Computed example of a mutant assay.
Amino acid sequence: MEMGEQDAILVIDHDPAAALLLSDFLEREGYAVAVAHTGADGLRLIRQSAFALVLLDLELPDVESTCLIRETVRIEAPPEIIVVTARATLDSAIAAVENRSAGYILKPVDLARLGGIVARVYDRRRLARDNARLHAELSERLAESEALAAISATVSSTLDVREALRRICRELVRLLGADTAAVYLQDLGSGRLAPTAAYHVPREYLDTLSTTPLPLKEQGFFLPLWRERRPVFSDDVTADPRFTHPMFRSFPHQSGLLLPLIVEDEVIGGFYIVWWTARRSFSDHELRGLDHVCEQVGFFLRNARRYEQAERNQHRLEVLHDVSRRLPTTSTRSRRKVRGLASTWSA
């Protein structure tokens, strides 16, 4: 059985023969084992390393074992403790119970019983780790769902694209624990990413961020972001060769995340999210969650584009109808042409 440092067992026993007996048995069972022969050495190891379990002899020559138990349970993520003693007393048993020891074993040690207790300790700790992981995953999903709900409410409450994007930047900052977020949309004429909206930009950087476009093809993130449609992040932007544009150097920051904005299977821009001093990296799971957020933003932008196109067509249609009414002497051919254009734009 392969075990990490957090899964190791520490045997603290003043008797070398007893310590060897216990460590050999536990190693044969597949556990990683460390040994200390004094309370001071044992406490030093507990503070230096992470252990799942401590087998503690009550008859230590230098430290009162109950004091060592109290010190152990005070540390962050303390190991569980099995008390081992050749002389059981009521006081030691009460102390073991009060400090929630995982077991109380008499010498000579019944190795089969010890093995059962150790196995239960590890099962319990694995269950606790699994519960903590599931809780973290559920918290992430809840935060993602809340962000999606907030973004959905945002995009349904305004037809102003810039204002909607600013609010979405705000939700991304809240979701990711970031400091600042900005959105850039591609300018087809220049091929650059033009700043469009932002949230929580420091005053001293506002002019720079609001007026400086990003030249796509000069940046190292062009291929993964634009062609492969993958997020790009760095937890050390200043030293990252992919972020060489002067704009990134004009406002020094530690971490940055670029998220692609895709509309109708085409990348049209991206969000840039900033952590001024914190190092921030992302797991694949987190990036997949952000894909869902960007998909929803993409749907909004697609619908906004269609709405703007419909508005333009409606305006043109009204102009053509007005022209048709104002020109009663227009030839039949001209009238047909006007009606044809009106039909095209109203489709």
Results as ranks from 00 to 15, higher is better:
residue 269 G to R: 06
residue 173 V to I: 12
residue 109 V to T: 05
residue 48 Q to K: 13
residue 198 A to E: 06
residue 284 D to V: 14
residue 302 R to A: 11
residue 324 S to D: 06
residue 11 V to C: 01
residue 43 L to F: 09
residue 107 K to M: 03
residue 191 G to K: 09
residue 252 P to W: 07
residue 242 R to D: 15
residue 209 L to C: 09
residue 260 P to S: 03
residue 47 R to W: 03
residue 120 R to M: 14
residue 53 L to S: 04
residue 210 S to I: 13
residue 229 R to M: 12
residue 49 S to H: 10
residue 300 F to H: 10
residue 57 D to P: 00
residue 5 E to I: 05
residue 142 L to D: 12
residue 28 R to I: 08
residue 162 R to P: 07
residue 238 T to L: 13
residue 232 V to K: 11
residue 191 G to P: 15
residue 8 A to V: 01
residue 158 T to N: 11
residue 329 T to D: 13
residue 233 F to D: 03
residue 267 V to Q: 09
residue 167 R to M: 13
residue 78 P to V: 07
residue 79 P to C: 08
residue 78 P to E: 05
residue 259 L to A: 02
residue 65 S to H: 03
residue 295 E to P: 07
residue 224 P to R: 15
residue 335 R to E: 02
residue 150 A to Y: 06
residue 334 S to P: 00
residue 154 T to M: 14
residue 55 L to Y: 08
residue 308 E to V: 14
residue 149 A to I: 13
residue 154 T to I: 14
residue 50 A to Y: 08
residue 81 I to Q: 05
residue 165 L to Q: 11
residue 7 D to H: 05
residue 229 R to I: 00
residue 192 R to I: 02
residue 296 Q to M: 15
residue 145 S to Q: 14
residue 265 D to M: 08
residue 98 E to V: 04
residue 210 S to V: 15
residue 95 A to H: 06
residue 109 V to P: 01
residue 123 D to E: 10
residue 16 P to R: 04
residue 277 T to G: 08
residue 129 R to F: 06
residue 77 A to I: 08
residue 158 T to L: 10
residue 157 S to D: 09
residue 34 A to R: 04
residue 158 T to I: 08
residue 293 V to M: 12
residue 317 L to W: 15
residue 343 S to Q: 10
residue 146 E to A: 07
residue 176 L to M: 05
residue 93 A to E: 04
residue 47 R to E: 05
residue 50 A to E: 06
residue 60 L to N: 01
residue 117 I to F: 10
residue 144 E to C: 12
residue 176 L to C: 03
residue 165 L to D: 09
residue 201 V to E: 02
residue 237 V to I: 13
residue 6 Q to K: 11
residue 7 D to W: 08
residue 151 I to Y: 10
residue 171 E to F: 03
residue 118 V to P: 03
residue 32 A to S: 11
residue 248 F to A: 02
residue 144 E to Q: 15
